[in-house]
Design a protein around this nucleic acid. Structure first.
Lengths: 196, 196
DNA sequence: ATTACATGAATGAATAGTCATTCATGTTTT
DNA sequence: AAAACATGAATGACTATTCATTCATGTAAT
């Protein structure tokens, strides 16, 4: 119990420190201080600095992925499914800005191993969009001339950028609902079969 | 001449090295080697490592911005203007993958100074989208319930993500034209006033 | 219930290596 | 022969990781 507790304390601290200072500028001693443990203790729970970063990502995305999949399972309307995905994503990013920062910035970084790891792990999450779009096309709700893979990038990129801004400027004047509504309005109108 | 020549040689080399290894992992000696100058020579042209990064960005974005503004000046159809912007951006990102990498990844980094600098400089470039959208709304071509600021993020995020992928996977199987077409189809249908 | 012993989690000072930046020296240009 | 430019080895500051030691908790023996 105590061990598990300390593990998450370090994860939480690291998320915060990485978000604030960036992976390379963050010091192990910063994380230790934030988590209120000794520097050495961190190495009882993680192999090295990279391992901490990957764990932050793994556990963070894991939670979001799990929740999203659960919510979507109870649904079979493509439009409604996209709505759920968008709202869940924006809500999660807004709620945990530190995690958002790590996912959006630190994990993209250069290091090929990190980058490929992120893309692999992440593709499970963004792949959901592709699946929904294909499903919608089969149902005849979404236009068939839309490339599911490309439009996945288009939607995800839009979500990524609008939520990234929450971490940069103090553009708090848009709520999750407003943003979700704009993104969905534009994207859905863009991919749906005309019906009026 | 010789000085100017060396300056750009270093910029080009740095762009390549930063793109490949990332800002923090890149060594000054790597850049020097790539540019075929001595380590110390770099400090005759730049104040420090950060200065090199900012210069890469400044000069790179400057060129793209200039070209885009020039092309747009000769036009007054909002739809056509968006098309030009999208195609120019994708073409530029595709053509200079190293610069794209630096802009998209390295410059987002954490360091608050860097980040704010990027956002300030960049907002001039992405702000063009906002202007075009507002222009289109005034002309009654784009829906008035679209937030120009938000939809700027939506379009730019989409562009950023689709072009980022060119640097990660070997997803070369979409051409600039195909990608531009999908993005524009979806986005324009999303923001235009219905006219049928 | 007190004492002796055992365990392994936690500590943080010391290590070992890295690299941005400087500068004494050399080379080229005017 | 100045002045301007270029070199790259040496410097010095910085920090991830290690590991000898401490300490808290549990178990066994008396």
């Amino acid at each position: 119990m105590k061990a598990e507790n300390k593990h998450s304390k370090i994860i939480t601290a690291a998320t915060k420190v990485f978000a604030k200072k960036g992976f390379f500028t963050a010091r192990i001693s910063d994380i230790a201080k934030e988590a209120k443990v000794a520097d050495g203790t961190i190495y009882l729970y993680f192999n090295n600095k990279y391992d901490i970063l990957l764990s932050v990502f793994e556990e963070g995305v894991g939670k979001i992925l799990g929740k999203t999949q659960k919510l979507l399972a109870a649904n079979d309307d493509p439009v409604e499914m996209l709505r759920i995905y968008v709202i869940e994503h924006l809500t999660a990013m807004r709620k945990n800005k530190n995690l958002a920062e790590v996912i959006q910035i630190e994990l993209r970084q250069t290091n090929k191993v990190i980058k490929q790891y992120r893309d692999k792990k992440f593709s499970e999450y963004t792949g959901i969009i592709t699946t929904i779009i294909q499903f919608g096309q089969e149902k005849g709700v979404f236009r068939s001339d839309i490339h599911p893979d490309l439009s996945k990038r288009i939607l995800f990129g839009a979500l990524d950028e609008v939520s990234r801004v929450w971490n940069v400027t103090l553009e708090t004047h848009y709520t999750v609902e407003e943003v979700a509504d704009q993104v969905l309005t534009i994207f859905l109108r863009g991919i749906m079969v005309a019906n009026n």
